[in-house]
């Protein structure tokens, strides 16, 4: 963990001088969202005035159940449609794009309920993540020499990632035979196959046994250390305080606070809205608003 601390402080440097107030501007934002709104019936699930996510940091998105975290995730990644709002990724407006288009532009997401493709092998799961495959076009698929080389290169990359995520010896197993934690690892590894600039993790620790949590944390920080941006939703406060460079707090769809972990810990509004209520609500999950 000592090596982690040095990198955390490295990322914190980038956030130096940023005021811990909702909607604050960041020195080098990779994601900028403005006026993002989504309501279900009469209920406003998300109403974010302005939000910036700093490039190359781990940003946590927290909030009580029903705060709209998963909904915001779905909106930003094109898995749900906004009522209104604009957002840009890496300087390019991506609102209105569909899920697969957002993924292609370099912002990849995972899911709260892990979506390992259970009746496919672990390696096939990985290979699905590779982009611009000639063999994924219907006509191209029939001309094997056209994609064989690319497939071999992708397989090599997949093997390296599986090695890194300690799944290499499982490569020929069905993904459905993996444990919950291993599926989380697989999902993370698979998302890296797309070579994303930004990774959105929806509750990466949910349902993972404590022994694997440390290893998952290590993987998340290593994503940041490779220069990727990580935005994640999580409930476990120890996890959040331990690895986040920046924390954004949502309540009733709005950003009520943001700041470094130390700022958030002492924020009165946050304690009222979330931390005080954590004990009894952490278990319930957030499936109801996703």
């Amino acid at each position: 963990m000592s090596s982690d601390e040095t990198t955390v402080s490295g990322a914190e440097d980038r956030m130096a001088g940023v005021e811990p107030v909702p909607g604050v501007g960041k020195p080098d934002p990779v994601l900028v969202a403005d006026g993002v709104r989504r309501s279900f019936g009469g209920l406003t699930a998300v109403d974010v005035e302005h939000l910036e996510v700093q490039r190359g940091t781990i940003t946590a998105l927290i909030g009580p159940n029903g705060a709209g975290k998963s909904t915001l995730f779905n909106l930003l990644t094109g898995f749900d449609r906004v009522d209104q709002g604009r957002w840009s990724f890496d300087g390019e407006a991506i609102n209105g794009r569909r899920g697969h288009q957002v993924a292609r532009s370099g912002m990849v997401r995972t899911f709260q309920l892990t979506k390992a493709l259970t009746r496919m092998s672990v390696l096939d799961n990985m290979l699905l993540g590779a982009q611009r495959q000639y063999g994924e076009r219907m006509a191209g698929a029939l001309w094997r020499p056209g994609w064989r080389k690319q497939e071999a290169a992708n397989t090599e990359r997949a093997m390296a990632l599986l090695e890194r995520f300690r799944l290499l010896d499982k490569r020929d197993d069905m993904a459905g035979s993996l444990s919950g934690g291993q599926r989380k690892l697989l999902e993370m590894a698979r998302s890296l196959m797309t070579e994303p600039d930004m990774i959105m993790l929806d509750e990466p620790m949910a349902g993972v046994n404590p022994a694997l949590v440390q290893s998952l944390l290590g993987h998340i920080t290593s994503l940041r250390d490779e220069g990727r941006t990580v935005l994640f939703v999580e409930h476990d406060m120890d996890v959040i305080m331990g690895i986040s460079d920046w924390i954004v707090v949502l309540a009733q769809g709005r950003v009520i606070a943001e700041g470094r972990p130390s700022d958030i810990k002492s924020d009165k509004q946050v304690i009222d809205a979330y931390l005080g209520a954590q004990e009894d609500e952490a278990e319930a999950g957030e499936g109801d608003d996703g």
Partner: peptide
């Protein structure tokens, strides 16, 4: 298996 997962991979 799961079309959302496939969608999320572009």
């Amino acid at each position: 298996e799961d079309e959302d997962a496939v969608r999320s991979l572009g």
